[in-house]
């Protein structure tokens, strides 16, 4: 494996091996070992053309625990939103000898453009591209679900997951639908019809407009951030109405199955898609998702970078 651009780049055994590797790395980092020499001498660039402190910090911590040298390149908005700059930036990173680029970008497909171009030769990790995918988030979500609810198996067979909210614009949803279904979970997408893409019938998931009918039957409720500006684009009438039908509050949480968990990729809009009580409840594994994010991203960097160049692409 050379790049991680989309969950579609992984087959089931590769996905499971990343999760297993993350488990071992979590165990190592839980103990006395805070720093591993594994990627000593490797340079990893965090290229963030869009604000995302949490994802950047998570990748930075992961890289540093593996002893890689980390360069943060944050170029929000204008300078990197023009294509020639992406090319020029990539060529600069190549000249600096970057072994991997972790890229967050507002344009769907930006990570793939970087990987497919001949502008640079390092590995590319997609840390969120536009409304396309966010594979490391899906892997950490799957890792968290498996840790809490996995019935001893390596995959998620037998589990039901509801993903609730702005599916249309969500890269987290796209990656999770692919990954969770590949790992054997049954995925239900819950949203107003305006926030579901045309063509969703081809996705490996079922669709519901009725959150209340879905809640009692799922093991995981994954809430997605709803951006306020969607209202001006007529996706829903106002925040109050959205919250009434698609928000997760204590009443709805009370209908959840015993042992079912609440997830959110963050950052949360407390009071809009999720109430403060739910976010802070015992069912919520939201802060644990953040913790697991570091182990999963260590595993991703390990898989992409620890091996030798000669053998890349084998298997």
């Amino acid at each position: 494996m050379r790049h991680l651009l989309s969950i579609a780049d992984l087959n089931k055994s590769e996905a499971i091996s990343i999760l297993d590797t993350a488990s071992e790395l979590a165990r190592v980092s839980d103990g006395a070992v805070k720093k591993l020499p594994t990627l000593r001498g490797r340079t990893i660039v965090n290229l963030f053309a869009e604000d995302s402190t949490r994802t950047r910090i998570s990748f930075e911590a992961a890289a540093k625990r593996l002893s890689a040298d980390v360069i943060n390149f944050s170029a929000k908005g204008s300078s990197l939103s023009k294509g020639e700059s992406l090319k020029d930036t990539a060529m600069t990173l190549q000249a600096m000898g970057a072994d991997a680029v972790v890229i967050r970008h507002p344009a769907s497909g930006a990570a793939q453009r970087l990987a497919d171009s001949h502008w640079m030769s390092g590995s590319v990790v997609n840390a969120g591209d536009g409304t396309h995918e966010h594979p490391s988030q899906a892997l950490l979500d799957a890792f968290t679900i498996r840790k809490h609810l996995g019935m001893g198996g390596s995959d998620l067979t037998g589990l039901s997951v509801a993903i609730v909210g702005d599916i249309l614009h969500s890269r987290v949803a796209r990656s999770n639908v692919l990954l969770l279904s590949m790992l054997g979970a049954k995925v239900t997408l819950v949203a107003p019809p305006t926030l579901l893409p045309v063509g969703i019938d081809s996705w490996p998931a079922t669709v519901s407009y009725d959150f209340d009918s879905v809640i009692p039957h799922v093991d995981v409720v994954m809430m997605l951030r709803v951006q306020q500006e969607r209202m001006s684009d007529l996706f829903f009438p106002n925040a109050r109405e959205y919250s009434r039908y698609f928000g997760l509050n204590t009443d709805r949480m009370a209908c959840m199955k015993k042992g079912a968990i609440v997830m959110h990729p963050g950052p949360m809009n407390r009071g809009l898609e999720i109430s403060a009580e739910v976010a802070d409840s015992a069912r919520s594994v939201i802060t644990e998702q953040v913790t697991n994010g570091v182990s999963v991203r260590m595993a991703i960097l390990y898989v992409l970078l620890a091996g030798g160049a000669l053998e890349v692409g084998s298997n």
Partner: peptide
Amino acid sequence: LDITLFRDDLRMRPPRAIMPTKI
């Protein structure tokens, strides 16, 4: 004690699975 993460020849071989370390 799995030593994979501490190897100095990682770059000469394909990535290997990490085995459990149990102290």
